[in-house]
Design a protein around this nucleic acid. Structure first.
Length: 369
RNA sequence: GGAGGGGUUCCCGAGUUGGCCAAAGGGGGCAGACUGUAAAUCUGCUGGCUACGCCUUCACUGGUUCGAAUCCAGUCCCCUCCA
C-alpha cells in the first residue's frame, strides 16, 4: 500500500495538527519524531528498546547502506525490515543530505552525483534512477527523492541551481519509482529565500507526491530563519499530505516546527549528543559528563518514565561515560530518544485536547535553549 | 661490595653541543560544541599571580656562569648486571 495521511485535528491557534499516517508496516501517530538509524541501526539501541521507548518509525540511509553492506545484500536478506529485525515503518533518506555533508567527496552534474566513497575512495554515480533502485531494494515504507541540499550560506545562483535540479530529479525519481508497498516523498528546497522556497514548494507539490520533505534547513542558519522558511513553505503543501521537516530535532525546534504545521521530524541530535555525554531535560540540555554530577545519585530526570531514569543515577551514568563504557552511551541514548518521542506524544495529546498553545508556552517557560 | 643506567610539571614521557623551556607528545582532568550521522567525534584550557609582565618549578644541597632541567661536587632514592 501507499501511505495515507488522515488529518484528525487542527489546532485552533497555530498550524499544529494531529493525524495518522498509515503505512504497510503499521500506523504512525503524527506529529512524530523518527530516530535515525543510518546504517540499519539506531546507534547502540536495539529494535526492542526502540519499541519500548515508544519509537514508531525509524530511518535508514541509502548512501550508507548502498556502500555497505550493499542494497542487493539487504534485498537478499528479505529487505531492510527483516535484515535489521524492525517490523515497524522505516523511512529511507536518499543520500541527498550526503550531497551536503560529504561535499568534498562528490561532484554534481545534471545526471547525478559522483561520490568518492568515504570508506575506500571508490567512485559511485548516484542518479535519481539509481537511488530509486536502491531504495526499492531496501524496501522501506517511505523513500525520499534524491535531492540537492544546498549549504548555508550559499550564493543565490547556487540555491537556484539546487532547487531546479531537485525538481528535475524529483520528476525522474517519480518516473523511476515503481513499488506498491513503498511511497515516494518529494523534497522541497530553496535555501533561505522566500521566493525560492515558494517556487520549490509549488514545483514539487505539482508533481503530486504522497508526502513532502522540507529539506535544506537546519544546515547552520539561525533558527528564526528556519522558522520563517517553514512559515512560507508549509501553507503551500496540500493539507492532506504529511509534511516532514528533515534533520530537525532539538526540543525547541520540534515544538516550533509543529506549531508551523510539521508532522514528521528526524534528527541524529539525540543519539549524537547522548554519545557525547549530554541529555535532554525539560529544563534544557544537561552535560551529565560534567564534574558537578559526580555525586548526584538522582536520575537524569526524576519525572521521566524511561528505562534509564527508572533505574540509574546521574553519578553512575557519568561514571560509565567517563570510563568509555558502552552502557553509558546506551543509557543516555535511550533517555534522549524517549525524551523526544515522548515530547511528540505530549504535543499530540495537547493538540487533540485543544491545548497546544498552552503546552507550547508551558514548554518554553521551563526549557532553556 | 663492584659495574652501569636513572630520578622532569597530576601520571607516563621528550628534552642534558647551557639561553628560542613554565618545559614536546600522550594520558588523565576541566569545560564547550554537536540538528535528513565520515561523529562513543571535534575544539579549547590544564604551575601561580595584583597577568602584553612577574613569581615558583625539572630528587636534594651547594657550586660554575651574565644565564642551569641541561655543566661540576656531594647527598638521598630507584633499576639492571656482577660478587
Amino acid at each position: 500500500m501507499q501511505v495515507k495521511y488522515h488529518l484528525i485535528k487542527n489546532d485552533p491557534h497555530t498550524q499544529a495538527r494531529a493525524g495518522i499516517l498509515e503505512t504497510t508496516h503499521g500506523n504512525i501517530e503524527t506529529p512524530v519524531f523518527m530516530p535515525v538509524g543510518t546504517q540499519a541501526t539506531v546507534k547502540t539501541v536495539s529494535p526492542e528498546e526502540l519499541k519500548d521507548l515508544g519509537a514508531e518509525i525509524i530511518l535508514g540511509n541509502t548512501y550508507h547502506l548502498y556502500l555497505r553492506p550493499g542494497h542487493d545484500l539487504i534485498a537478499e536478506a528479505g529487505g531492510l525490515h527483516k535484515f535489521m529485525h524492525w517490523d515497524q515503518p522505516i523511512l529511507t533518506d536518499s543520500g541527498g543530505f550526503q550531497v551536503f555533508s560529504l561535499s568534498e567527496f562528490r561532484k554534481i552534474s545534471d545526471e547525478g552525483v559522483l561520490f568518492r566513497s568515504h570508506l575506500d575512495g571508490s567512485s559511485h554515480l548516484f542518479t535519481p534512477e539509481k537511488v530509486m533502485e536502491i531504495e526499492m531494494a531496501l524496501g522501506s515504507d517511505i523513500a525520499m527523492a534524491f535531492d540537492e541540499c544546498a549549504p548555508y550560506p550559499c550564493d543565490v545562483k547556487d540555491v537556484v541551481n539546487a532547487l531546479e535540479r531537485t525538481t528535475r530529479w524529483a520528476a525522474r525519481c517519480k518516473e523511476a519509482h515503481h513499488h506498491e508497498d513503498q511511497s515516494l516523498f518529494g523534497i522541497i528546497q530553496g535555501g533561505m529565500i522566500r521566493e525560492l522556497r515558494e517556487r520549490s514548494a509549488k514545483e514539487i507539490t505539482a508533481l503530486d507526491f504522497p508526502g513532502y520533505g522540507i529539506g535544506g534547513l537546519s544546515v547552520g542558519e539561525p533558527k528564526h530563519l528556519m522558522y520563517e522558511m517553514l512559515d512560507y513553505t508549509i501553507p503551500l503543501i496540500p493539507e492532506d499530505k504529511p509534511r516532514y521537516l528533515m534533520g530537525v530535532g532539538s526540543p525547541d525546534c520540534l515544538v516550533e516546527g509543529v506549531a508551523r504545521g510539521v508532522d514528521m521530524f528526524d534528527c541524529v541530535l539525540p543519539t549524537r549528543i547522548a554519545r557525547n555525554g549530554t541529555v535532554f531535560l525539560p529544563t534544557g540540555k544537561l552535560v551529565v559528563r560534567n564534574a558537578e554530577y559526580a555525586r548526584d545519585f538522582a536520575p537524569l530526570d526524576k519525572d521521566c518514565s524511561c528505562y534509564t531514569c527508572q533505574n540509574y543515577s546521574r553519578a553512575y551514568i557519568r561514571h560509565l561515560i567517563r570510563c568509555n563504557e558502552v552502557l553509558g552511551i546506551r543509557l543516555t541514548s535511550i533517555h534522549n530518544l524517549h525524551f523526544l518521542v515522548n515530547l511528540m506524544k505530549q504535543i499530540r495529546l495537547a493538540i487533540l485536547q485543544g491545548g497546544f498553545q498552552d503546552f507550547r508556552e508551558e514548554f518554553f517557560a521551563h526549557y532553556m535553549v
